[in-house]
Design a protein around this nucleic acid. Sequence first.
DNA 1: CTGTTAGCGCATTCAG
DNA 2: CTGAATGCGCTAACAG
Lengths: 365, 365
Amino acid sequence: MAASTLTEVARLAGVSPATASRVLNGSARKPGKDIADRVRQAADSLGYIPNAQAQGLAKSSSGLIGLIVHDIADPYFAAIARGVQEAAREQRKMVLLATTEGAPADEKEAVAAFAARRADSIVIAGSRSSRSEDQEGNADLAAELDRYCRNGGQVGVVGHPVVGATAADGYHVLPVPNEELAASLAVELAASLDDDFVIIGGPEGLFTSDDRIRGFQRGLGKAGRPAAEVLRSAFNRSGGYEAGLALAAGIKASRSEDGGTAAGSSKRICIFAVNDVMAIGAAAALRSEGLRIPRDASIAGFDDIETLRDFRPALSTVHLPLEEIGRLATRSASGAGPGAGTGDDGPPSAITGKVTLRRSTETAA
Amino acid sequence: MAASTLTEVARLAGVSPATASRVLNGSARKPGKDIADRVRQAADSLGYIPNAQAQGLAKSSSGLIGLIVHDIADPYFAAIARGVQEAAREQRKMVLLATTEGAPADEKEAVAAFAARRADSIVIAGSRSSRSEDQEGNADLAAELDRYCRNGGQVGVVGHPVVGATAADGYHVLPVPNEELAASLAVELAASLDDDFVIIGGPEGLFTSDDRIRGFQRGLGKAGRPAAEVLRSAFNRSGGYEAGLALAAGIKASRSEDGGTAAGSSKRICIFAVNDVMAIGAAAALRSEGLRIPRDASIAGFDDIETLRDFRPALSTVHLPLEEIGRLATRSASGAGPGAGTGDDGPPSAITGKVTLRRSTETAA
DNA sequence: CTGTTAGCGCATTCAG
DNA sequence: CTGAATGCGCTAACAG
């Protein structure tokens, strides 16, 4: 038994399909009140559900928003996804999810799939990359996006533009002040701590990571501190853990150099991990090596992931309004259609974050 | 400039649309190698992307899987979503996301929306509820699901069947042994701890919560312990926090009764929170009241949320293969079509969890 | 093996 | 204000 169609509803109501369509969906013209009721009644007596595919075909617009993330189980993306979902709901649209592990080739596939479904807009949340291994994928992705935009699609990208994407109509970037915020974090940290700074970053070429590293170094410079050493590892918890292990070894080594008992003589280090999840991993590594925070090392992250806020010692970090980022990116990809003229998308709706110092970077006391 | 169509490709290749369709999509019959190449070349010279809406209309199947969760930012659902996504990828389908905050009325809307999009299957991940305020919503949801199934849709539900749903063809439930596992947890805890047990549960009527409470009590009974008192609050972090606050007050009160200095004379309590997120909230509350875990109270959760594993003291819990749950629920809603006969969906593919005791429930030492 | 014909379910011209 | 006709882009029966 197939779902009932508009035609069936019309027949039952004794009207034409056109009329039925007009009453059941918001048409410009309002049919007569009496006949409208008949149609509506017939509709739900049959349990009529409009076929969105057919509607989409006829109107060429699908009510779909495509969302691309690296990993939906990563709390960073999950939070953004929630914002996207909210915005979608406001627009009475549904969100189509694609996860790509950050591979531009997969992202290109996702864009093509969204285009095939005639998604009204696409939101790309994952960090852009300029790594050489991603060159080709990036080019393909850029081309696919370009085509999508040329066909009237809207895209909203969080953070940085896709590498190589021509600033087409309908292509919007929501800037995130990663660099500025990281600089502020460095300045605040430098003001209260005497520690030597070390950075745990993601792979070189990951924009989000690179921005935060650059900003942090700049802030350090502004505070009259030397640039920090940078350890590179995976942009996730285990990357943080590995780097943390290496740092722990270093801390222990420098201590024994200072002579066994003079435990306080070597300077404490302050670790800046470019995101909270890496910071937590690093903290776990230090702990597993018998080191304590903030006694033996201080540590700060970035993002202010909600689920991690109960972690002890409380993690110093930079708060980012993740949910709002998702919302804004989605809205930016829904505004004026192509040919709006000025190329300006109304108020830039800038994202603002906030340095949030907590126990993990207190002085050793 | 609209996207190019199959007809355009066909014209450019000098063949009929039917032939073009046959080569570009997997048809049973294979066109001649020479002509196939011409079509393929024409296709990507035009940047042809098939219109999934039109395909769906013609084939009446959309390649879409609908996923319903309470909140995508909740790590429990995020983990399941990842599993669903994986399974979807295996089937070369995309996932449509709907979040409902657990309201059956919204879930009904979501099902209708999925039905409108002709989703091939629907996965419902959120806990079922039998609360009176959800009665009406449940009935509507059940009716909507029933209709969806009758029209050939497949649905997979995690945990418990939707209240009132008639076991239609295409309706599959993936059981999660919440009760058994909670019982095992109680037994293991009772074996190593002398504590008095207290349970922090979600609102009465939430199946997942109720199952875990019931199981825990049963385990307690089996171990010769009296039933635990049950505190009810919201099924999330703040619910846990509030309940934790109440418990902290109780702990302090009973201590002062025992006389100020005899801090060890009143028995320690062991808190079982029905999920990890609530447990973390409760732990935070205790801590904020100056209590320490496991010294002043022990605590255990349920789910073994990955992001929470670095929490200290490490949380005792019951490990659940969340990702696999998502995968299996998705697969169960993709197997044999309607009319398969036996009503049996092959191997029950049972979910198994594992009691995982960690520091938060060690003896006070 | 290919081309032609006919819908899939709906929105939207047009005519009445 | 209503009904009949046309087409969205594609697939699946037919015919050649």
